[in-house]
């Protein structure tokens, strides 16, 4: 089952990533943008929960994200514990036009820090940046400048703007908790790929597992060594060596 040779010289690792956040903050839209480079306006709430994968190419390695989206079941808060179990990364999303969604995001961060794998990489993401910019649709009135992505421009108390969560507030919180922080727009695609690249870069080498089910490669650490490849079973039973 090994990756077939020469086309993939870079080591490839799977990373389990869980998406958390209040309903309707745009979790699924972020993933759709990342995976399919696609955006649907007025998307229906996700029915069920999605599982998607997408590769992220770094200079020295390839990270394959396995993305678990709890969308549609936030109210019951029962999928998340199962999703973040053994997850190496979490993307906690809030909506910059909705302060309560940041509160909820902070709640998720606290839960992850309490319950998830130690060393999990957490990114805090303020989505719907497009609604904050003057050209972003709903805001007829003028706002003097579109704030830069990384919160260069902290005075965004502009009432015409749909933004209700100042960048600096969220950024300060993220810094305090050592979270990666981005403001994104799933609609325009702004910063979406950057979030995933930043997460990929932040995953410590040591917590990376090789591609699943690969055996007999170089550089095997003890964990690799111990894994049993379930698809390697013999169709015919072993003829146990008869030594007689």
């Amino acid at each position: 089952m090994a990756d077939s040779g020469a086309s993939q010289p870079k080591p490839s690792s799977s990373v389990k990533l869980v998406l958390l956040g209040e309903a309707a903050v745009g979790k699924s839209s972020l993933v759709m943008r990342f995976v399919n480079n696609d955006f649907q306006e007025n998307k229906e709430p996700t029915i069920g929960a999605a599982f998607l994968t997408q590769k992220c190419n770094l200079p020295t390695r390839t990270i394959k994200f396995e993305i678990w989206d709890t969308a549609g079941q936030e109210r019951f808060a029962s999928l998340a514990p199962m999703y973040y179990r053994n997850a190496q990364a979490a993307l906690v999303v809030y909506d910059i036009t909705k302060p309560s969604s940041l509160t909820k995001a902070q709640h998720w961060v606290a839960e992850l820090q309490r319950q998830a794998s130690p060393g999990i990489v957490i990114a805090l993401v303020g989505n719907k940046y497009d609604l904050a910019s003057p050209s972003g649709g709903d805001n007829a009135e003028d706002a003097d400048a579109a704030p830069a992505a990384e919160g260069e421009n902290p005075e965004e108390e502009d009432s015409a703007d749909a933004r209700r969560v100042p960048t600096k507030t969220a950024k300060a919180y993220a810094d305090e908790e050592s979270l990666l922080f981005f403001e994104t727009s799933a609609k325009t695609g702004m910063n979406v790929a950057e979030v995933f690249t930043a997460i990929a870069n932040a995953i410590p080498e040591t917590s990376l597992k090789g591609p699943r089910g690969v055996g007999g490669q170089t550089n095997l650490n003890r964990q690799e060594d111990a894994r049993v490849n379930l698809t390697g079973g013999r169709a015919e039973g072993p003829k146990e060596g008869c030594a007689c």
């Binding site: 029915i47 079941q73 029962s78 199962m82």
Partner: peptide
């Protein structure tokens, strides 16, 4: 198994 069921649309409620 439960995760796969959730991906298929199963709704999960603990407690």
């Amino acid at each position: 198994a439960c995760r796969a069921s959730a991906v298929g649309g199963g709704v999960y409620v603990l407690g």
